Simulated scan of single mutants.
Amino acid sequence: MTDADLTIDDEIVARARIHAREVCREYDLEIDREALEWEVSTRARRRAGACRWNRSREVATIVLTRQAYERYEWETFAGVVRHELVHAWEFQRFGESGHGTRFREQATRLEAPRHCETFSEPRYVLRCLGSACEWSARRHRASKPVKAPDQYRCGQCGHDYEVEHAESGRTWTSASEYGGVKAALGETW
């Protein structure tokens, strides 16, 4: 393989592996890098990274998102790598991982963010219709609460909510209105 054959995905994995080696050395993080695999996602829209655990093989796979790599500065993306390394460390050491106390302590030690900033704009925004409530949520896919908001309630106060198609500004509060907005927007949906 020549340099001309390398892709951006190859670059992402190479930089992440180098950073992982540096982090393990600098912070004395005990990770079996031989039991660590790397992948790049071109589909993810919300998360910049993920770590999956294959219990039977005892292998952690860190999945990094190409779109986040292209949008973030390297230092921000390196924080994503450190965040996922904490998950890999937990999986290898304890067989499970989350964002609890153990994770937070290790993330703080590695200067890894607990949550990663968003790198893409949502397609939909859900907003509570209760006058005293400021709850809102961002969605990238047309999930059930997006398609049929009348079947769900605000997660904070229990009032109805509306959904906004972020690009057009069109809103709906029921499944039938969702269908109407989708039909009206046609190809711009």
Rank of each mutant, 00 (worst) to 15 (best):
C116P: 00
C116S: 10
E117M: 09
E117I: 02
E117P: 09
T118D: 10
F119W: 02
F119H: 02
S120F: 07
S120L: 15
E121T: 08
R123Q: 13
R123A: 10
R123M: 05
R123G: 05
Y124D: 02
Y124V: 00
V125R: 02
L126I: 03
L126V: 03
R127H: 12
R127N: 11
C128V: 00
C128K: 01
S131H: 08
A132S: 14
E134G: 13
E134I: 02
W135P: 02
W135F: 13
S136F: 07
S136V: 00
R138P: 00
R139N: 02
H140R: 13
H140N: 06
R141V: 14
A142T: 09
A142Y: 02
S143H: 13
S143E: 07
S143W: 13
K144W: 00
K144R: 15
P145H: 09
P145I: 05
P145C: 10
V146G: 06
V146A: 07
K147W: 04
K147N: 03
A148C: 08
P149F: 10
P149Y: 12
P149W: 13
P149L: 12
D150M: 12
Y152G: 14
Y152T: 12
Y152L: 12
R153N: 12
R153T: 15
C154S: 09
C154I: 07
C154T: 12
G155Q: 11
G155T: 13
Q156V: 15
Q156K: 11
Q156A: 15
C157M: 06
G158P: 06
H159G: 15
H159C: 13
D160K: 00
Y161M: 05
Y161C: 04
V163H: 06
E164V: 11
E164G: 09
E164N: 05
H165V: 09
H165P: 11
A166N: 06
A166V: 10
S168Q: 08
S168N: 08
G169Q: 09
G169W: 03
T171I: 14
T171P: 01
W172H: 08
W172C: 10
